[in-house]
């Protein structure tokens, strides 16, 4: 199994990357087509499931993913496609609807062929401000928490190293 890397960039972006054992056209299809998205987007091991999943994958089209965790009310992520260049590049907005006032992220995902049969996926999420990134990030699963991810990430690892 390939590993997932998650880092922060600057004070307003998050970068997630991963290599998949398939060419870009397959990974792009799995990433965008709602029939496939509903199979992977909700983190099942954390008790979440997909309630509904719609995606009109074309420039100007929209998508809406609704997930639910346990018996808590469902919540949705939604946005519009800004650029759809299959199978190598995708740009879309993403709002977390319960906190829509905070604005939306602009997500740029690139799918780069590695050798004959692999794809390097890099998802770059840029938020309107550092503060919004904090809010959106920290709402991952629990509401109302805010944190400056990269600063704390760095801090915690330093402290852990110091404590060992």
């Amino acid at each position: 199994m390939n590993t997932t890397d998650m880092t922060t960039e600057g004070d307003d972006a998050i970068v997630i990357s991963r290599t998949f054992n398939a060419p870009p056209r397959i990974v792009f299809e799995a990433w965008t087509n709602a029939d496939f998205v509903k199979k992977w987007w909700a983190p099942k091991a954390l008790g979440a499931q997909m309630v509904s999943c719609e995606a009109d994958v074309r420039e100007g089209g929209g998508y809406r993913y609704v997930i639910q965790s346990g018996d808590q009310p469902p919540f949705a992520f939604s946005g519009n496609y800004i650029e759809v260049s299959a199978p190598s590049r995708l740009v879309y907005t993403q709002a977390f609807e319960p906190m829509a006032d905070a604005g939306y992220a602009t997500v740029t995902v690139t799918f780069e062929a590695v050798g004959a049969n692999q794809t390097r996926m890099v998802s770059h999420e840029r938020y309107p401000t550092a503060e919004v990134r904090e809010m959106v990030l920290s709402t991952g699963m629990e509401k109302g928490m805010r944190i400056t991810m990269d600063q704390l990430d760095e801090l915690v690892s330093e402290l852990q190293a110091a404590g060992e």
């Binding site: 997932t4 991963r18 998949f20 054992n21 992977w40």
Partner: peptide, 10 residues
């Protein structure tokens, strides 16, 4: 977790 699932789909 999410991307492990995507791996399975792929």
């Amino acid at each position: 977790d999410r991307l492990d699932q995507l791996d399975d789909v792929i």
